[in-house]
Structures are given as structure tokens and as C-alpha cells.
Amino acid sequence: MSRIIVVTSGKGGVGKTTITANLGYSLARNGRKVALVDADFGLRNLDLLMGLESRVVYTAIEAMAGECRLEQALVKDKRQHHLVLLPAAQHRNKEAIDPTQMKEVVGQIAKTYEYILIDSPAGIEIGFRNAITPAKEALIVSTPEVASVRDADRVIGLLEANGIEKIRLIVNRIKPDMVQMNEMMGVDDVLDVLSIPLVGIVPDDKRMIVASNRGEPVVCGLPDSIPAIAFDNIARRLEGEKVPLLDLMAAQDNLINRIRRLFQG
């Protein structure tokens, strides 16, 4: 049985595409057969983050219309042989496809691949419904900000209403120094408010931008960096392994921390 997992958030720009790319890469490197499905029709991004944009010939639209075979539309990753991407159409809008078609095409892919990660667009309209309809599990991405957490909560409610029971949280873009100064919510705060199981945390890190510029997920280009370890850990937890949470605070040893420790004894 393949795992069909949607990565979604409600709010835009919180890291869905980045997380889909990195988890997909990490799972494939561990020997899994992984297909990434870009469900962000009209605003496709996943091909860029994977550095596969020049290899896109067909998209999900042609595959669904029978204008090409599904295998022809699946773009193979340059680095991982078990990793493919089904690109979204860039010149069509979200209405070009409906949830039934999406479910059918994902069902086809599920015959060959063990993991299917669906990168959902922001919002809760048709594009979101296309992304969640085929899914059996969901990863909710939220940053520790009020608007993001609120939207995440809304989406959790919608997923539950659609019969998706396995819903887990990824808190992205954590800034440990700000949390420590009580200037920002921490993981525990977000968890307390949303009350769904946590599957991982990812720090805010400049290297994420560098990686996206290169078209190379951090887990691939900078495998020893803290964000890369964070993604590898999430991939392992998806596989059922028990992996302790990264201590992001300990990774920080700045002046403020040292002064604080001085005062706190």
C-alpha cells in the first residue's frame, strides 16, 4: 500500500513546496520510490526547487487528457533514481482539473510508487480540494505566527471533515533566539493551540534560500546542515522510526544566550 500524503497549510508562503521537495528527496535517498505531485496549477514551483524545470515536457494535464502516457509526464530527478515529479501546468488555471481527475491520476501513480507527496496550493478553494482529495494523510505546515496557525487550524478542520484522519504538524521557520527572548511563539505553544501530533520542526535558515537559488534541496546540497538534518528526521518519522526532536536552542550559542545563562545561574 502506498502512502499518499498531502502537504498543505492554508496560508501561503509558509514552506509547503520546500518541505515537499526535501522530504521527497530524503525518502528517495533512503531507498523509497517517491513521486512528487505539484498540485499548484498556474503557479508551479516544485520543478524549480528541484532544479528540474528544463526537463518538463508534459504536465498532469496532458497525462489526464491522454495526450501522453503518464510515464512520459513523470520527470525523473537528476540525482535520485527513485524520485519523480509530476509537474502542474503553468499556463492553465486551477479549474483545468477537478478532484476526481486528480484522484484518478494519483491512483495510477500509486501503482508504482511507495510515497506520493502532493504539494498543495495556498488557500482552501478548488486547488486545495484537488490536492487533498486523493490523500490519505496530511502534513500541516505552519510557521509560529498567529495568522499561519489560525489558517492551519482551519485547514485541519476541513481535512477532518473530508475523512483524512492522519494529520500531523510541521512547524517551519523557527527562530530559536526569538523564542528564547519570548518574542515569538515556540513549538510547544503552537502544539498546545493546535492539538495535533507533531512530526517535526525546521529552523529558519538562510541556507534554504541558497538551496532554492541552486535548484537543489538542502538535504541534497548541504546534507550536514541543521535544516537538512531536520528534514531527514521528519522523513524517518514518516517511516515510523522514533527520532528525538532537534534541540534548536543548543545549536545557538550567541552572546545573548551567554548573558542569559549568567543571569539565570
Binding site: V146, V149, M181, N182, E183, M184, M185, D192, V193, F263
Partner: peptide, 21 residues
Amino acid sequence: FPWVSPVNSRSEAKRRLKLIL
């Protein structure tokens, strides 16, 4: 030393969120 204050941006965010949700 803002982190010793009980009223801070972090608790404010959480308090508002709980109410909104």
C-alpha cells in the same frame, strides 16, 4: 531583560490565538 516580563510578544500571540480559534 524582556524575557523576564510575563507580558511579552510570545504570550500575547498565544492568548490572541486561543481566543480566535
